[in-house]
Amino acid sequence: MCFSCFTQNFWNLLVLGLADGFLYALVAIGYTLVYGVLQLINFAHSEVFMSGAFAGYFILNGLIGTGSPHGLSSVAYVVIGIAGGACGGGVIAFLLERVAYRPLRRRHAPRLAFLISAIGASFFLYNLAGKEFGRDAVEIPAPFTNGPVFSIFGAQVTTYYIVIAVSAIAMLVILDRVVAGTRLGKGLRAVAQDAETASLMGVNIDRVVSQTFVLGGLLGGAAGFLFGLNTGVVYTMGFTPALKAFTAAVLGGIGNLRGAMVGGLLLGVVENFGAGLFGTQWRDVVSFGILVLVLLVRPTGLLGERLGRSA
């Protein structure tokens, strides 16, 4: 353990942690929304993340190629990449619900069947991606030149971090408004609180479930693209970040929207503090240690399980 490494790097680790945390939060929301309406953990959400990254890669590869955009066109490419990633994630999430889960719901299958179906769908999707898109990581053409923009207490905040923070906050705010104020959001909350009564009010449960998967898929896919900008894109990329996002969702209280946001940010920061304290090789140990700890000590998470709240 190296306490001075930690104190010296505190602000760096904090910035890094928040950037990671925003991505975890975006992905965690996908878990929490689906859990809220179906009490189901969508363990194939990792492939939604991966699909978003690939979608963003293909689109930007086609548009940018070997160019190096700057200024306004950078902004446009970032927005296009995020939108493309979101669409890729949304489509895969929609298909997952239709193919892997809905048939099981129809015949009132036991919980375990959903889990097996999720794992099967996940294997299928990432192996399909590996077969079609190659086994090696590819790089998304940079839509902007990354570099420090400003620094706080010596920690440099780069363009990439600003892109993550701004786009994540925008998406989280929009989601919050959608769930609180729109017809879709009301239907979603009603189904989460009491599905049968919601159907008596005229809510088409199947449609709300479908929309919920898409909503989570949009955010998860966008996060996949943002993540892939830094790490490159490969068919197995979804597994670890998605499992961490699941940890974040559990940490905040699965089924609780604000909880997923808070849990994501908290996990990102704690994980990076842990890495600073014990060395980077301990990163994942810290995250999954938290998962085990939360499940043992406070399984309802920090804010409790509740999607019903108008956020």
Partner: peptide, 19 residues
């Protein structure tokens, strides 16, 4: 009764008119 416990009274009424 099965009202939606975490929605306001007004939102519960709006749910009734969902369609």
């Amino acid at each position: 009764r099965r009202i939606f416990p975490q929605m306001s009274v007004q939102e519960n009424l709006e749910m009734g008119a969902y369609r």
